[in-house]
Design a protein around this nucleic acid. Structure first.
Lengths: 289, 289
DNA sequence: TCATGGCAGCAGCCCACCTTATGTCCAGAT
DNA sequence: ATCTGGACATAAGGTGGGCTGCTGCCATGA
């Protein structure tokens, strides 16, 4: 079968017009080069060169074929270049901080994809609240951080968004079968309310404030989302949470969209100094998405 | 070293996402394919695929490399195409008729070049006067003919031109050292004149007639150029011949350009029916010249 | 727990390809 | 004419690259 060495030889012969010199150029003996060309001519069933006394020149078809051989070799050269440029990209570590909900939901497929593309790069992820994440990034202790409502800047990329949804107990009047699963925020805030933060700065309270509304009847304020859901189940009140935080088991709960949807966006920001090849590769993967 | 088979395997694996199926696609065992990509990864020092349980998917660098591998393979495919299209071009015969002077002067390098480009095509050349050549072409007994002043048409190509020059004996008054080696045709025709045809239709007589001139003093009319030169040497008169017909030994002769140069052009015409690949290849070679 | 699918590793074998050595042809020189 | 040198082809022989066959490993699913 044909060897890339054979094509290198053919191209060299075309360049030098001389089998002997071409042979030593590619590190073969004259005999080897001669046989290489003879083999290709045999395989293709076409004469590639006319062997004159003085020089060995390509035939017409030979010329076309040699052109393609050059294409092949230049592709091979490109491969070498790609490999060289990827040096230092195949090894590396990315330190990343992420808050819990996203870490459990949208991050895993991303990490898996990245691990496929860059098996040599370790991504070590640590869980933190978003205040902590800001601090970690500022201190340079992590390269990348997942934050809520990231500023639009060059070293940040939007990953997704997450609608705030109302959670009411089954049987609540907002959840009557006849009605669509929609509620206006203004109606919601009039209910007995359970406030949950999830350790996150982008709280329901702020969402409500941004809509120029006020909580009339704040019953409880908790940190964990799960506590809030438990309280809703008990009929203590209603709450407003990001959709991703909803538990798998929604028994006893009724989820309502907001009539005028409000989203929290989240995205990745990188420490300005963390401009390693590994980090860039990570952002590159997310960019076209 | 790397084999083209290896690259075929890599591309197949990328296409199927599965080493086993790719292997049978390229006619290898699973083991062989596995070793092939392992070898390439070893050689390049780069991981090409991440072997998942479910599928074998390219890494980021692997993807770029596979792109180039496809380039290589498509080049190889192009080579196969070129070879296929050249079938019937590598064998063949061209019958050609040519008049003597050109056969001896400008044709040899052309034939040598063509023989280099198409060693499998035999060109058999026969010598004839240009009336005979016309007849041979018309009868289809030759594929290509060299003619003087060919009509501008698709199946003809101009090969060169050849100025008519005056030949006078040494010491002739036209050849005085003080004068430039130029003479006006009108002056020439007033001299004792020797007419030579060389068996060619494009005679000096016609050239003179086209310039609305007349021979005042026609002394001899011969067929062979060499006879004319001999007569000029003897001082019988002057003559007008195409430059190419001049003998190597010009002793006793003085060559003068015409003040208003007249050329005879010659070119190849092909029989309309002689549209074989071989003939087309011959014309293709001459076209860009 | 076993069966299945998919990949890697090992041993062995074989032939494809390279080298060494020699032959051939031609051109130019003596 | 003979010799010599350059350039390519050919013959023969050795070897290592690469393929096959088999086994092992691991994960998943019944």
């Amino acid at each position: 079968m044909m060897n890339l060495m054979h094509w290198r030889t053919v191209v060299a012969v075309a360049d030098y017009g001389n089998i002997t010199r071409a042979a030593e150029r590619v590190g073969l003996t004259q005999s080897g080069a001669s046989q290489a060309i003879a083999l290709l001519e045999e395989l293709l069933g076409v004469q590639l060169f006319t062997r004159d006394r003085r020089q060995t020149v390509p035939t017409a078809v030979g010329f076309q074929i040699i052109e393609q051989a050059r294409v092949m070799l230049s592709a091979l050269e490109t491969i070498r270049t790609v490999v060289d440029e990827s040096r230092g990209l195949e090894r590396g570590t990315i330190r990343m901080a992420c808050f819990p909900v996203v870490l459990a939901t949208i991050l895993p497929p991303i990490l898996r994809r990245f691990k496929q593309s860059h098996p040599g790069i370790d991504v070590i992820t640590l869980e933190a609240s978003d205040e902590e994440i800001d601090a970690l990034i500022a201190a340079g202790q992590v390269d990348i951080g997942m934050v809520v409502n990231p500023p639009a800047s060059r070293n940040s990329v939007l990953l997704g968004r997450d609608p705030w949804v109302a959670v009411v107990p089954n049987g609540h009047r907002f959840a009557r079968p006849a009605r669509r699963d929609v509620v206006a925020l203004s109606e919601l805030v009039a209910e007995p309310f359970i406030l949950a933060t999830g350790g996150c700065r982008a709280t329901a309270e702020k969402v409500i404030a941004e809509q120029r509304l006020k909580l009339d009847d704040l019953r409880v304020s908790v940190r964990d989302w799960s506590s809030a859901f438990a309280l809703v189940r008990e009929g203590v009140g209603v709450t407003l949470v990001p959709e991703l935080t909803l538990p798998d088991n929604r028994q006893g709960l009724r989820i309502l969209e907001l009539a005028e949807p409000v989203h929290r966006r989240f995205g990745l920001v990188s420490h300005t100094k963390a401009n390693t090849k590994a980090v860039r590769a990570f952002f590159d993967m997310l960019q076209p998405a």
